[in-house]
Design a protein around this nucleic acid. Structure first.
Lengths: 100, 100
DNA sequence: TGCATACTTCGATTATAGTCGATGCGACGC
DNA sequence: GCGTCGCATCGACTATAATCGAAGTATGCA
């Protein structure tokens, strides 16, 4: 089963910013940008599965990350090239500041 | 009467992104960044006053804009230097993309 | 085939955000 | 002083988002 991912031409800036505007999602994006390889269970161990899954969906539908199944595990990766292509400098500015 | 504005050290990235994550507020920030001088009535003529005022508050409390009274009119300006100081490149990336 | 794993989706609940009329308050003109 | 203008704030309502248990689905292994 494949999850639906928007194409870069479908990205909406307000949706991307809104997705990043939640501390819990912002943190995940930052960790992904630092090269961390996250799957859905390890990313937020203290958060219930269904809640976490909701946040993955928001991030995925905004275009920020990709979920690819590898066996039974779904791995999440930042769609850095796609986001950079549409909103140059945005991701760098967001993950570059040492802030939350 | 003076409205409360946070100092740059109080800015929270997630709050700034969340404030920008609303299409109506994003548009105002873009217009301000293009040098438009807006007051509270002219900025969103089609939106009820109290609703508009709510959005000014969100933008003001996140640190994105400053409201200064000039006589009876309150003029809004982007706090570009303060935002750039804390989150370099963020505003450029947001207003630079021709997107909504 | 059957069972366990690693998720997503569903449905209900709660929390937060947006909307807008009414009211309040400071600034200006008179 | 009084009235008006330009806004903020209040309070009530509505809409959207977050939370989480339960159920559903694809994968892998025995």
């Amino acid at each position: 089963m494949q999850l639906a991912h928007p194409g870069p031409e479908e990205f909406v800036l307000a949706s991307v910013l809104s997705a990043l505007g939640s501390p819990i999602r912002l943190e995940v994006v930052k960790r992904l940008s630092q090269g961390e390889h996250l799957n859905c269970t390890t990313a937020l161990p203290h958060v219930p599965q269904s809640t976490a899954s909701h946040h993955w969906r928001v991030l995925r539908e905004s275009g920020l990350l990709q979920q690819t199944r590898e066996g039974r595990v779904i791995t999440m990766t930042l769609r850095r090239a796609d986001i950079d292509g549409r909103f140059p400098g945005l991701l760098d500015a967001v993950v570059g500041s040492g802030q939350s």
